[in-house]
Amino acid sequence: MPERTITVIDVGGTHVRWAGWSPGRGLGAVRRVPSPSRANRPDADVGALRDELVRLLGDAVPAGGAAGVSFGAALDHRTGTVYASAPLWGAHAEPFDLRAALAAARPDVAWTVVNDVTAALLHLAGATRGRRKIMLVTVSTGIACRTIDRRTGTIPVDGCGLQGEIGHLPAATALGGAPVDLDCACGRPGHVAAFASGPGIRRLAGVLRDRRGAAWDAAPLGVRTARGEPFETALAAALDDGDLLAAELLAAATGPLADVVRTALCLDPDLDLVAFTGGVAAGLGDHYRRALLGHLRREGLYLTGERDPAWTLDRIRVCAPGEADGLVGAGLAALGGTEAR
């Protein structure tokens, strides 16, 4: 009997991707369209965006098929109810039963809905050996993490079915020794994502430009952005050029996440790997890892940071392209590859 193909879908604040997938054949051709989201359409009505998204996902699945959805939002891992997504819906936080909405629109489809970081973690963990616990942090339009215990195959969740919503933890950063005040996309000030997400880094760059003036204009990052290069491309190229202002910007953006990693490793020494994925981390690659390690070298774990610095530093990885793919993870979830406890 031919192996059944599952439609796998990854919903982010910027794009929706989907493809056919099976364990034996892997991913088919991936299609990609802009997400119906506040990130793309800031003034759109949230109800209309949700309706459009349900139609888009429903149209992607053949009649009588099965679908695994990797969804970029804080959602109840047990039920598929979405609590909030700043990139998708801004500060709007009325719960949305996505799984029920999809089932109502396409009752012929077997729907599985998981958080996008959960999906990416399932793919990473399935190909990683010799690690007890793995934490995956995604840094893109939003920020979140998930931890899996590979000894039991479980992703622990709290009483709301949540885990790892680190993007909305309180945080602080500074540029040139002076604090920076920025609001998160969720509407509250001083969250990790306000400084460390893709939009957060762009806002930090605006603060740096305003504070440094002529120095910014002369620096590679300032020159590149002034001539119209996309910010993400300009930042990576400026770091390649050794731009000190770009390095200062990245240090300020990664500081809040280094604080989270340091705390996580302090509280849970069973974490054998802390991996980073998402457009920001993957796009900056080694630059991003070096910035994180710089914080952890300067302010490491108490005693361990001095006696055995490699214990921390060897646990930090930026995923290679395709190493933590939410599309593959959505397929694994649809096959029953994770258990929430």
Rank of each mutant, 00 (worst) to 15 (best):
D59Q: 10
A29P: 04
A39D: 03
D149C: 09
G47N: 10
G68P: 08
A48L: 14
A110F: 10
G28C: 03
V113F: 07
T5G: 08
L49T: 07
P189Q: 11
G279P: 07
A144H: 00
A91W: 04
D43I: 09
T112Y: 02
R132Q: 14
W89E: 06
G80I: 06
G279N: 07
A246L: 08
D181W: 09
R132D: 14
S70W: 01
A264S: 15
P107E: 04
C319N: 05
R38E: 03
A185C: 05
G228P: 03
R31T: 13
D259N: 14
D76L: 08
G279Y: 07
T112N: 07
A67C: 14
S37V: 03
D308K: 12
V137Q: 03
R212T: 15
V8R: 00
L250R: 06
D308L: 14
W111M: 04
V318E: 01
G28Y: 04
V139K: 00
G64Y: 00
W89H: 10
G326A: 08
A100K: 09
T304G: 10
W216D: 02
A144I: 02
A73W: 12
I9C: 03
D158C: 11
D116Q: 03
P107A: 10
P199S: 03
I143C: 09
E94L: 10
A333I: 09
A119T: 12
A91L: 07
T225D: 04
R203C: 11
V54Q: 00
V16T: 05
L265P: 02
L265G: 02
A63P: 07
R307G: 09
A60W: 01
G65H: 11
R32H: 08
R131S: 14
E339H: 15
A66P: 07
L204M: 06
A215P: 08
L301N: 09
W216I: 14
A63S: 13
R297Y: 11
G58Y: 03
L265C: 04
E94Q: 10
T138L: 08
D210C: 07
R146W: 05
V69R: 00
A258P: 10
G164K: 04
P220H: 09
D158W: 06
D240H: 04
A144T: 03
P179C: 13
D308W: 14
A19K: 05
L235N: 01
T118L: 00
T152W: 12
R211A: 13
G161D: 12
P23G: 13
P62W: 13
G12Y: 00
A174N: 08
A103Y: 02
T128M: 06
G305F: 10
T138N: 10
R202W: 01
R315C: 14
R307E: 14
T277N: 06
R290I: 01
I143H: 02
R146G: 07
R17L: 15
L169S: 11
R188T: 12
S70Q: 04
I143E: 00
L124M: 01
P156N: 06
L245T: 03
L162E: 11
